[in-house]
Design a protein around this nucleic acid. Structure first.
Length: 750
DNA sequence: CTATGTAAACAAC
DNA sequence: GTTGTTTACATAG
């Protein structure tokens, strides 16, 4: 829209000069703003104390003694009232004292309680290998009132089971935890050396944290190196903006945050942004929020406040903490990378890569149709270190490709729609319907058949098979269509959507429909625009209708889960849209998946389904996300690895049958996945005639998975092959032309 | 090419 | 001024 004219001029400027140096100057502009706001008062003070005292005596009555039997281990007795900062301070101080050669492992014991030994922590022992690292095992810290970030309204209660990150699942409490962990970690990193940057510490500390239930925290030290914490502090975090935003949002119980809070959270957790980064980082944050579909803006009921949320389907619920752990865990190397980057001169900074390693491989979204509901368990550990990377990369990808929903208005049923936005579809729809909450809304809308390639065909078949779309739609058919149209139209059409007009969906949320997310580019290639535009309506939150799933913790999650049974795939197919542009290669495929996402917009609460697909697809599948289990289902997923190789994973393809496998034998497929395979195979691509039966639902699900898998992984050709194989006899599929009679070649198939 | 990061122009508030 | 969108470009992979 903007006319190009202006742009050019502007653009020209490039970055040149390095900016500046540091911080003070630049940042100052913004920094001031965010003061301590959220931090907790109490803690802040505490932290100060700690800081002061830290040199020798450990604040808050913390005692550190050598472990009687374990060599490099010290036992840290922590009074119940001690806060994290104090602990950190003590550990830091101790670390300094000891030097790099000193004990690198600490067992934290709360004074009040019995000193138990660390349950979970065992692993740490292992880690000990690394000389540099300091490990800390926490036993029982009382929970405390954590400050938490920003918005959390509710007081967290302790979550019982969670231990590690609970964030995902739990809410506040979990979050808190996470945060705390997170903070600590960072601190550890930074401070470890010994310096003690009080400020930083304070900041961090200030925030939330405390409340560790049993968590393990590891702190890395880099003693020797001395890279100095300064560096670290100044170092740009290895996370992309997108990832940081997610961390921030996921740190709250509601899983939503205002822009300002996001800024604050980031500054608090990553001092780099507070002190060193140029003010433009906020612009980047905003840019990312607007750009990625996974970030959905919700408006408060009254319309006055906008909260940014993560589309449930896309939300892996990762937290800094989690990511941090993962990184550490698996490979030192990865970790290293992260850490390492450091030094870039200022100017160079840009170069840094973002963070997490990108994994390209898999990304493909798989759709697990079904749901996560099953999957969702929060806990899960994520295996991979990759998580982070995944997040960033995949999610991103996802988002882009998929496009998730746009913003929603919260209006929700109850609520009145916001004036502004709104109108859209709502008009049309009667919101009233309450319909099932579940509705999958899917959105689907888009149908584009895209004739084309194989890849496409994948999609297609599916579609065909399932009627799904319709199903949901039923409730609000009209809507759907409309919506779809709208989206599409919008896309096609000239464009102009007034921003958000759409919103639509929301309608009762449920119905919603979806606005598809799709937006895409309008004309031509577009490659450019990367964003979504949509808004979301209203829904709101609170209600957590989602219960459906039950699960838990985060409402939002639930939403995600909802998804429905049937459909699953379809949407994707619709989405296929992307392909168009996608061009020839794979892209399309992936995109397809995303489709699922297409649905878009719904707000969390209300409409679950839309995303449903997405999630899995995107991230989930790929990612390790604990959340989506689907993978698990597949079996192979070994996450971590999996990621990497997708060859294997992806191929999950395997669902296909054995035979193929053999064919491919050359390749290593594992089929492990199989479970699905049985059923799935067929689904995937071709519609089977019989399909439906009992399994229908399940199938669909499977199918979707399959599809996803297939798609991803393979290129067209590959996929095609699979297809054919799979259903040798079945049908003639459209593909027909290409299809080969595998049977001939392969006896087994036959 | 894609994913990210930056910077900036605008539009609404 | 803040927030949100969108362009345009730069860079790394």
């Amino acid at each position: 829209m903007k006319t190009s004219p202006r742009r050019p001029l502007i653009l020209k400027r490039r970055r040149l000069p390095l900016p500046v140096q540091n911080a003070p100057g630049e940042t100052s502009g913004e920094e001031p703003k965010r003061p301590p706001a959220q931090q907790e008062p109490g803690q802040a003070q505490a932290s100060k104390e700690a800081a002061e005292s830290n040199s020798c005596k450990f604040p808050a009555g913390i005692k550190i003694i050598n472990h009687p039997t374990m060599p490099n281990t010290q036992v840290v007795a922590i009074p119940n009232n001690a806060n994290i900062q104090s602990i950190i301070t003590a550990l830091t101080a101790k670390g300094k004292e000891s030097g790099s050669t000193g004990p690198n492992k600490f067992i934290l014991i709360s004074c009040g309680g019995a000193p138990t030994h660390p349950p979970g922590p065992q692993p740490q022992a292992q880690t000990s290998n690394d000389p540099k690292r300091t490990e800390v095992v926490t036993e029982t810290l009382g929970s405390k009132p954590a400050a938490r970030d920003v918005n959390l309204p509710r007081p967290p209660e302790a979550l019982p089971g969670q231990r590690w990150e609970s964030c995902a699942g739990s809410e506040a409490a979990g979050c808190t935890l996470d945060n705390s962990l997170t903070n600590i970690q960072w601190l550890g990193k930074m401070s470890s050396d010994g310096l003690g940057p009080s400020n930083i510490k304070q900041e961090m500390e200030g925030k939330e944290n405390r409340h560790l239930e049993q968590s393990q925290v590891k702190v890395e030290e880099t003693p020797g190196a001395s890279a100095s914490w300064q560096d670290s502090a100044s170092e740009r975090p290895p996370y992309s903006y997108m990832a940081m935003i997610q961390f921030a949002i996921n740190s709250t119980e509601r899983k939503r945050m205002t822009l300002k809070d996001i800024y604050t959270w980031i500054e608090d957790h990553f001092p780099y942004f507070k002190h060193i980064a140029k003010p433009g980082w906020k612009n980047s944050i905003r840019h990312n929020l607007s750009l990625h579909d996974m970030f959905v803006r919700e408006t408060s009921a009254n319309g006055k406040v906008s909260f940014w949320t993560i589309h449930p389907s896309a939300n892996r619920y990762l937290t800094l903490d989690q990511v941090f752990k993962q990184q550490k865990r698996p490979n030192p190397e990865l970790r290293r990378n992260v850490t390492i980057k450091s030094e870039l001169p200022l100017g160079a900074r840009r170069k840094m890569k973002p963070l997490l390693p990108r994994v390209s491989s898999y990304l493909v979204p798989i759709q697990f149709p079904v749901n996560q509901s099953l999957v969702l368990q929060p806990s899960v550990k994520m295996p991979l270190p990759l998580a982070a990377s995944l997040m960033s990369s995949e999610l991103a990808r996802h988002s882009k490709r998929v496009r998730i929903a746009p913003k929603v208005l919260l209006a929700e049923e109850g609520v009145a729609p916001l004036p502004a936005t709104g109108p859209l579809q709502e008009d049309k729809l009667p919101l009233g319907e309450g319909l099932s909450p579940l509705l999958p809304v899917q959105s689907i809308k888009e149908e584009e058949p895209q004739p084309g390639e194989e890849t496409l065909h994948l999609g297609r078949p599916i579609k065909v098979e399932s009627p799904p779309l319709e199903e949901w739609p039923s409730p609000c058919p009209s809507i759907k269509e409309e919506s779809s149209h709208s989206w599409e139209d919008s896309s096609h059409s000239p464009t102009p959507r007034p921003k958000r007009s759409y919103s639509g969906l929301k309608s009762p949320a449920r119905c919603v429909s979806e606005m598809l997310v799709i937006k895409r580019r309008e004309g031509r290639e577009m490659s450019r625009s990367r964003r979504k535009q949509h808004l979301l309506p209203p829904c709101l939150d609170e209600p957590e209708p989602e219960l459906l799933f039950s699960q838990g913790p985060g409402a939002s999650q639930r939403a995600t889960e909802l998804t429905l049974p049937t459909e699953s795939s379809e949407p994707a197919s619709r989405l296929g849209y992307s392909q168009e542009e996608g061009g020839p290669f794979k892209t399309p495929i992936k995109e397809t998946l995303p489709i699922s996402s297409t649905p878009s917009k719904s707000v969390l609460p209300a409409t679950p389904e839309s995303w449903r697909l997405t999630p899995p697809a995107k991230v989930g599948g790929l990612e390790f996300s604990p959340v989506h289990h689907p993978q698990a289902a597949f079996g192979p997923l070994p996450d971590a690895l999996g990621l990497t190789d997708f060859s294997t994973t992806p191929l999950k393809s395997i669902p296909l049958f054995d035979s193929p496998r053999e064919l491919l034998s050359s390749e290593p497929f594992d089929l492990t996945s199989d479970p699905f395979s049985t059923s799935s195979p067929s689904d995937m691509e071709v519609p089977k005639p019989d399909s439906p039966g009992p399994e229908a639902a399940s199938l669909s699900a499977n199918r979707s998975l399959t599809e996803g898998l297939v798609l991803d992984t393979m290129n067209d050709s590959l996929s095609k092959i699979l297809l054919d194989i799979s259903f040798p006899g079945l049908e003639e599929d459209p593909l027909g032309p290409d299809s080969i009679n595998w049977a001939q070649f392969i006896p087994e198939l036959r």
